[in-house]
Nucleic acid binder design. Structure first.
Length: 494
RNA sequence: GGGCGUGUAGCCUAGUCUGGAUAGGGCUCCGGGUUCCUAACCCGGCGGUCGGGGGUUCGAAUCCCCCCACGCCCGCCA
């Protein structure tokens, strides 16, 4: 007991953190194409990736997060294709999707909405209009040749800016952005192609396309070959991804990619190509399953089944505001708003994190907005209770002193036991990538504290008072730490 | 057809890597709890063929084999 409490209460120490490993690790996550706002399906990637980064940092790793921006593919080409035309010249079906558009609006509060709005219509239109599709294909070829149209990068950056603002609402930020075009510009894609040409299983197809015979890599039988350049010599996405990964593998000791299950085959293809070019090591993949709609199927912007993160967060704030207003007549509007946002964001982040990544999640509003039970607000509430006791005990930040003998009742012992589990939980999550274990631990600790709270009158005058305050101090610190790992705001009151 | 993933009470979920005793939680539902540190809480109750069948083992949700269901992927797209 003394050891656990001592570590949890040590001033300045990060209870639960491991010593620095000296190891550098790159976590690539999210990497959504800049084509429009995030829906909740896409953002599972970011929430898992961001949390993994926090957990690995706590475990002592030196973490760099990267967002890989695809600015040279067909999707990027579609955005530039449509916005390079005067709006009056847009095909009517696309025009109909964004009737208010007058031209590319880059300086609005939501450039991802402004520029991404016509995207689904463009996508649909191209399927039925080969001549337009050919224009986009031609543009795509230009992009890949390094011939970027005047405002191309501007469009991509604007949409990305809007998307990142949304992610920022739930605490997701990136250390670095890596643009796919940079690997074409610096010649590294070309070097990859050269190496693959000389690789053990290289073959040239009838039309001149370069491929790798993948039969030895255990890939599906129907995909015996990995094509790395088209007949016209241009590279494919996976080829450019090899260049990106060689750069990452050369710079970081560990490389982790957070990928949706639909990219599972891509991951194995990438591994095969990295082996072919003689890469010294390989990336680790953290694969998560989709968030589906209750009726089944993935979220789709075009089908109208997508739930946007911003809308979810807005609704969460509305509901949280009502909850806070119900019980806090003592706070002003600004404070009420601050608490509501913290609760709302905590609920949404926790809802995604509570489930193992390999489980598919059927999105339901009432689940995502739950503030009770196994939820973010449940843990936040326990933290707020602890903080409140410490304020009233006039020991918000210590110093804390305890005698083990004062904490020999079952509730205190159980709480200490729960606290002692924190370091190994962090270590486990870091080792396995099972960040949901941290969410589970957070709930278990909050649960144990709530029981303690119910049974032990901490501030009651008596010989145990100081020790009990110390135990609450240790719990508050640990709850704060675990909430930070989850990216959920540790509210001082709610 | 092949590959990958998932299947645990009405619903959601932990545990499966590393086999161990009555399979933990949450939601819903029912019944309690507030002169006392925030009731977004606590206590009790209802509810389980751990997808099915074989096998290994003293012992299987967990390991092996077969099958079933669901999801995703199997482009010179990304």
């Amino acid at each position: 007991m003394s050891a656990t409490l001592g570590r949890a209460l040590a001033p300045g120490a990060d209870f639960g953190s491991g010593p620095p490993t000296g190891r550098t690790v790159c976590i690539e996550h999210t990497s959504a194409n800049p084509t429009g706002p995030f829906h909740i399906g896409r953002v599972r990637n970011g929430i898992i990736g961001d949390t993994l980064a926090r957990v690995l940092r706590a475990a002592g790793e030196t973490v760099t997060t990267q967002y890989y921006v695809d600015d040279v593919g067909r999707q990027a080409a579609m955005i530039t294709w449509i916005w390079s035309k005067p709006v009056e010249a847009w095909p009517p079906p696309i025009r109909a999707a964004d009737p208010g558009a007058t031209g590319p609006r880059l300086d609005g509060p939501r450039p991802d909405l402004d520029l991404g709005r016509p995207y689904p219509a463009v996508s649909a239109y191209l399927k039925e209009h080969p001549e337009a599709a050919e224009e986009v294909a031609e543009l795509s070829r230009r992009l890949e040749a390094g011939d970027l149209p005047a405002r191309h990068r501007e469009f991509a950056e604007a949409i990305l800016r809007g998307m990142l603002a949304t992610l920022g609402r739930i605490g997701i930020r990136f250390d670095e952005f890596v643009w796919e075009s940079s690997f074409l510009a610096d010649g590294s894609v070309e070097r990859v192609v050269q190496r693959l040409r000389a690789a053990p299983h290289a073959t040239v197809l009838e039309n001149g396309a370069l491929a790798i015979d993948a039969s030895g890599y255990g890939l599906p039988k129907e995909a015996p070959q990995i094509v790395v350049t088209r007949g016209d010599g241009t590279s494919l996405y996976v080829t450019r991804d090899v260049a990106y990964h060689l750069a990452k593998l050369g710079r970081f000791e560990r490389v982790v990619d957070v990928l949706g299950q639909d990219h599972g085959l891509h991951a194995r293809t990438l591994e095969a190509l990295l082996t072919e070019v003689g890469a010294p090591k390989r990336p680790e993949f953290l694969i998560y399953q989709d968030i589906t709609v209750p009726e089944g199927g993935r979220m789709s912007t075009r089908k109208g089944s997508a739930v946007y993160l911003d809308d979810l967060l807005d609704e969460a704030v509305v509901r949280a505001r009502a909850e806070v207003a119900k019980r806090r007549s003592d706070v002003d509007l600004a404070e009420l708003e601050r608490i509501a946002r913290g609760v709302a964001n905590g609920a949404v982040r926790y809802h995604i994190l509570r489930v193992a990544p390999e489980k598919a999640v059927a999105f339901r509003w009432e689940d995502a907005l739950a503030f009770e039970g196994r939820s973010g607000p449940f843990v936040q509430y326990a933290h707020a209770r602890a903080a409140s006791i410490l304020r009233k005990g006039e020991r918000p930040d210590g110093p804390y002193e305890f005698r083990s003998a004062d904490l020999s009742d079952p509730s205190s012992l159980a709480l200490v036991r729960s606290l002692s589990l924190f370091p190994r939980t962090v270590a486990y999550a870091a080792r396995t990538g099972h960040v949901h274990a941290v969410a589970g631990y957070a709930h278990a600790l909050a649960d144990e504290f709530n029981r303690f709270y119910e049974r032990v009158p901490v501030l009651q005058e008596g010989p145990e008072r100081e020790s009990r305050i110390a135990l609450v101090g240790a719990t508050r610190t640990t709850l704060r730490r675990v909430l930070e790992l989850l990216g959920v705001e540790p509210l001082e009151s709610m």
